[in-house]
Computed example of a mutant assay.
Amino acid sequence: MAGDPVLDGVPCMLIRGGTSKGAFFLAEDLPDDPRERDALLLRIMGTPDPRQVDGIGGAHPLTSKAAIVSRSEMAGIDVDYLFLQLGVDEAVVGTTQTCGNLLAGVGPFAVERGLVDAEASTTSLRVRMLNTDDVATATFATPDGRVDYDGDVGIDGVPGTAGGIRLDVGAGPERSLLPTGNVTDTIDGHEVTLVSNGMPVVLLRASEFGVTGEESPEDLESRPELAETLEGIRRQAGPLMGLGDVTEQTVPKMFLLSAPRAGGAISTRAFIPHRV
């Protein structure tokens, strides 16, 4: 990178993808040294501070994220994407996981910053996710060669509608959807399903933890016993999933599953890993 990022500033785009919002950067605009890069991103987000008042973070893990994008040197790949999960009240930067939400913004960002040329109506590009070595194809509307952010696609957790982005994700080499080889395992007496599909997750029955699935995130976050139990399971699941000691990591995520409400096939409450 050239110049002083503090004095000169760093080009950045804020993009919502799915139910997350993140800061998108070109790799060439950030320091090459990971420690310098992470320190700069923490400063940009305003971490550590529960309000992130001195930065652009939104005081929640879903809005304290960064994507670093560059042209790919790999054959058949258009751009490389590195995801970073930044803490809110703790100065931590996680690179173990990827993020499908911010992946949705990589294509439009690549077009806006000139990494790829937009097609006349619809653009598709191949994205290598550096965190997991998975590859995705992103397809989105580009009428007249410009990204169209408007549309009629709506998702739970986000008000209004926006343009849809299709993501087709393929697993990287030597990856297994079920890292233990089992459909179910038992941890601390609870039946769990461990899944690694871009994001490592632990699936559990909500009823085993006294949860109906109708509780608000605030309600679940106010239950220290529940958080302690889930954290115990999470730490044991880490080594089983090949992640090693996950005490200081943001993966795997913990999902409590229950019967669907207001349509759909299933209801979920996600601990990511501590906020709900």
Rank of each mutant, 00 (worst) to 15 (best):
P179G: 08
V135H: 01
I233Y: 09
D144S: 13
L125C: 00
T47W: 04
T123G: 00
R35F: 13
G157P: 04
L203A: 09
Q52L: 09
Q236H: 14
R37S: 02
F140G: 00
L41V: 03
H190E: 11
D148Y: 01
E228N: 13
P61F: 12
L42V: 07
A138D: 01
L257K: 06
R126C: 08
L230N: 07
T47P: 04
E208L: 11
Q249E: 14
L226F: 10
R261G: 10
I44C: 03
H60G: 11
P224R: 12
A91N: 07
G160V: 11
A75Y: 09
D168R: 13
V192F: 08
R166A: 13
S176N: 13
R235M: 13
H274S: 13
A141K: 07
S121T: 14
P179F: 09
V93S: 08
V69C: 02
R128G: 02
G242H: 06
I155C: 06
A162N: 07
T96D: 15
L226K: 09
I272G: 15
G145P: 02
T229Q: 15
S20K: 05
H274A: 11
G198E: 02
I56S: 07
S258H: 06
H60N: 14
G242N: 04
V106K: 00
P34E: 09
L256T: 01
A120Q: 12
I233N: 07
I165F: 00
D188G: 04
R37F: 05
E215Y: 08
D4F: 06
F271H: 08
L40V: 01
G100E: 08
A2S: 14
L204D: 02
G151D: 07
P50D: 13
D144Q: 12
T98I: 12
T19S: 12
S207I: 13
A138C: 12
P34G: 08
R275H: 15
D188F: 10
T268Y: 15
L86N: 04
L26V: 03
V147L: 01
G76A: 01
L204E: 03
L125D: 00
R175E: 12
D4W: 06
Q85L: 11
G264A: 05
L167E: 05
V10K: 00
G22E: 06
F109A: 00
E90K: 15
Q85R: 11
L243H: 03
V93H: 04
A141Y: 00
S64E: 10
F271Q: 08
T184I: 10
R71G: 02
G198F: 02
R16C: 03
P200D: 07
G87M: 08
L203F: 12
L220C: 06
T95W: 08
R43P: 01
P224I: 12
S267D: 14
